[in-house]
Amino acid sequence: MNHLCQMSNFTLTFIVHTPQLLREAIAAYGVSKRALTAIKFTGGKITVNGVEQNVRYPLQRGDEVTLVFPQETRSEGLVATYAPLTVLYEDDALLIINKPAHQNTIPSREHPTNSVANDVCGYFEQQGLHVTAHIVTRLDRDTSGIVCIAKHRHVHHLLSEMQKRGELTREYEALATGRVNAQCITAPIGRAKDSIIAREVCEDGQSARTDVTVVKYVNLDGAIVSHVKLALYTGRTHQIRVHLAHIGHPLLGDTLYGGDRRRINRQALHCSRLMFIHPLTKVPLSITSALPVDMAGVTSQKNRLPN
């Protein structure tokens, strides 16, 4: 089994190990029906041993199948901007960056440009890559840390399916008010009845689980603050923020859920680790990002309290 990935003309190549129809082999490699339709009708190609074939072609052991995906076009509404990126990992299929706080992951009505997606499109353009930004892992505007971007819709599809199966693991670090105890929070989350933005713990919400471990406690101007690590087993909107507020320990800076901004000018939440198996190479990846300056200043050793 072998994968080749060239983003200027994205191809997926593999060797067949058992006799089967071509469409069965393609499906086994996770190619979506939408992507297959694009290959067949918008400029792609399917070959077996270098000869173009249709999906009903009977494959034999040892045949080499190559899928050539059509070139992608960027949405007209997604304008390229050219701010520098902090790249944590990059190959022909993936780009993983460190997002600063106060930046949208994707454009919004209030912030139509200068999002991560806009900057990534500019980055690709400067590299001569004819691809768009496929955001795999999003972060709230004021949350900092790791964001994963796929360089092709097929790779995005593979990673999205992995997310559904719980095969992408994200770890976060946060600063919460008060002395938080290590625990597992299992409380369903739904939309708050009086807000179009906020979420809340409610009986008819979606199931949600957050595991909390304590890194250290710090003394900040006479108040105890907990530096915690969090592992998510579900990916509900605002999950960490809602769960910590629910147990009485809102994040520093998170005014939406009961925190205040006397010590930090945004919710003190950072995605610090992303772990998954590369969807093409099958190599395990573990990407890390250190705490940004605003959070690191709060957790400095001089403020540390005994656990």
Rank of each mutant, 00 (worst) to 15 (best):
A80V: 08
V147Y: 10
K151Y: 10
V155I: 15
T137Q: 03
L21C: 05
A25W: 06
V48Q: 02
T86L: 06
A192D: 15
D63M: 02
I240R: 07
G50R: 01
V51L: 13
P84K: 04
K164H: 13
S289H: 08
Y123K: 01
P19I: 01
V218W: 07
I146K: 09
D221S: 05
V201T: 07
L168C: 08
E76R: 15
P100L: 06
L252N: 03
K33G: 06
Y57N: 03
T281W: 10
V116Y: 02
R191N: 11
L59T: 14
L139C: 06
Y29K: 12
P58S: 08
V79G: 02
H246P: 04
Q71L: 12
I240G: 03
A27M: 03
G205T: 02
M275N: 10
E24F: 12
Q60L: 10
R165H: 14
D221G: 02
T105E: 05
C184Y: 00
P250Y: 07
R56F: 07
G62I: 01
Y82H: 15
S226A: 05
V87L: 12
T234A: 08
V79M: 11
I26Q: 13
Q163L: 14
P279G: 13
P279N: 12
S115Y: 05
S286T: 15
H111M: 03
I185D: 08
H156N: 07
I277V: 15
R23S: 14
V65Y: 05
A133E: 03
N303A: 09
Y257M: 10
T234G: 05
K40Q: 15
T234P: 07
P112A: 02
F276Q: 12
R266I: 03
P292D: 07
H227R: 03
S32E: 11
I277R: 09
N54P: 01
A27R: 12
I146W: 04
H270Q: 11
A133M: 06
V79Q: 14
V155R: 12
G259N: 09
G222L: 01
T42L: 10
R153S: 13
T132W: 00
N49M: 05
F14R: 03
E52S: 14
D119V: 00
T143S: 11
